[in-house]
């Protein structure tokens, strides 16, 4: 299971929504895997691990000589945040060093209280310019994630910022509204919803106070519990007159053909979106990027060749 990397290639960071998905991603060639912990991640209940699953996944990843990244990327309310911060030492004790967060304030607090953590400014932080990445470097981020809409030339410029790891989400859904800048679902419906029961020990560090999350809020509830109103048909009215029926434009970005260009531009991490992907789709997706990164030349595969089922519609 150990895979030795002979050169300093960018890291392939794969998603996993279950312990099994973690093992599948490792087998498919991921250098690192990111997961969410129940109640604290934007992945929604289908893409989150219980504490026991997290511990088992960390053991599996560590024994393979790889890294597990933990997404704690909701924005908890103050009382919940205190609860979360109390549990961070247990996360560190598991051996997890990389944590993904979604708020500049929470990032700086974690940085101050847990200086050994490597903190990633998640894609929801909205970084996509050289100035954004410099900001997150300045406030103590170890890494910042930019969307796959950022091209290799932009990455080259962004990489002029020293002292921060640049991750690019090369496989993702590019929705109409920019990530981290959407309040459409919560405008339609915002409702506290009870977290799913995990069956884990009551003291386990998971779940926002074992209570609620804000269903509908992209930032606080998670995309897994947003209502995806952007994927539903709308009637377009000009004044009082209906003029069209339409969807918001969105597209699947799969930049497998560009991995060499990104690597030359200096990108550090190729990240794949899709914690809710079933394992039978996750494995070939990870393998495809593994092969593209390792290939001596630009792969012939291109975006259009990707099966439709690989589109991470549910993210």
């Amino acid at each position: 299971m150990n895979r030795q990397r002979s050169t300093a290639l960018p890291v392939l960071l794969a998603p996993a929504g279950s312990s099994r998905a973690v093992r599948v991603a490792l087998d498919a060639g991921a250098d690192a895997v990111y997961v969410g912990l129940v109640g604290w991640s934007r992945g929604g209940s289908r893409g989150e691990l219980t504490w026991d699953e997290l511990a088992a996944s960390q053991r599996a990843v560590a024994s393979a000589g790889r890294k597990l990244h933990l997404a704690l990327n909701t924005i908890p309310k103050p009382r919940e945040r205190a609860h979360l911060f109390k549990q961070i030492p247990a996360v560190i004790d598991l051996g997890i060093e990389d944590v993904i967060v979604n708020d500049a304030g929470i990032l700086t607090m974690l940085r101050r209280q847990f200086p050994t953590l490597r903190l990633t400014a998640s894609i929801g932080c909205g970084a996509r310019s050289v100035a954004d990445v410099a900001f997150f470097r300045d406030i103590g981020a170890h890494a910042a994630v930019v969307p796959g809409t950022v091209n290799p030339a932009e990455i080259r410029e962004i990489k002029s910022v020293r002292g921060i790891v640049v991750e690019i989400m090369v496989h993702m859904v590019d929705e109409f509204v920019l990530l981290g800048k959407c309040s459409m679902p919560s405008y339609v419906h915002l409702k506290p919803s009870t977290l799913p029961a995990s069956g884990a020990d009551a003291d386990a560090p998971e779940g926002a106070m074992r209570g609620v999350r804000q269903s509908g809020s992209m930032k606080r509830g998670g995309v897994g519990v947003c209502f995806k109103i952007c994927q539903q048909p709308w009637e377009l009215f000009d004044g009082g007159r209906r003029v069209d029926s339409r969807l918001f434009p969105s597209r699947q970005i799969s930049r497998v053909a560009d991995v060499k260009a990104y690597a030359r531009a200096g990108v550090d991490v190729f990240k794949l979106q899709g914690r809710s992907l079933p394992v039978d789709l996750l494995a070939p997706l990870v393998r495809r990027y593994r092969d593209a990164i390792d290939a001596p030349t630009v792969p012939v595969a291109h975006e259009a060749a990707l099966p439709a089922a690989w589109a991470v519609v549910g993210r």
């Binding site: 304030g105 929470i106 700086t108 607090m109």
Partner: peptide, 14 residues
């Protein structure tokens, strides 16, 4: 409003 200010800690950073 698009700066995503959700927390007092965020205010302190900004």
């Amino acid at each position: 409003g698009f700066a995503n200010l959700y927390t007092a800690a965020g205010v302190e950073v900004l």
